[in-house]
Nucleic acid binder design. Structure first.
Length: 115
DNA sequence: CGAATGACCAAGC
DNA sequence: GGCTTGGCCATTC
């Protein structure tokens, strides 16, 4: 567990791995924003790159727990498709408002970085 | 190596 | 209150 430091240069490993590790730490029923992950990495401006990492969407990474700062889902499927992210979150107990957004003040997880 | 992309964020109109 | 623009970073062609 504590074998790895809090933050390390992305050069060490693909920045993707770093993002996956953080997302894996997100407990069910909780959501985090891209900027939060980026901030945990050391730079909030990495938010865009975080999206690139999640684009790979590995199976062992709960990518559905990552939403934008607005509490909305950036994964907008086309007509006919289903909101997989929304279903997964709702299944975990996350409630959506009338606008289809999540209350980050309630479900937002601040202990992403921990320490 | 240069240009283009992207599941973002913040500010401006 | 909602839409548009700019900017930053890393990855890909």
């Amino acid at each position: 567990m504590g074998a790895e430091p809090t933050v390390q240069p992305a050069s060490r490993k693909g920045l993707f791995e770093r993002v996956y590790e953080l997302v894996r730490r997100v407990p069910g029923g909780r959501v985090v924003t891209y900027g939060q992950i980026a901030a945990a990495l050391g730079d909030v401006r990495l938010a865009r790159t975080v999206g690139w990492a999640l684009r790979a969407c590995p199976d062992d990474v709960p990518w559905h727990r990552v939403v934008n700062v607005r509490g909305g889902l950036s994964t907008a499927p086309l007509q006919g498709e289903l909101y997989v992210q929304r279903m997964l979150l709702e299944d975990e107990g996350v409630q959506f408002d009338q606008q289809g957004c999540i209350d980050l003040d309630t479900y937002g997880w601040n202990e992403l970085q921990r320490r």
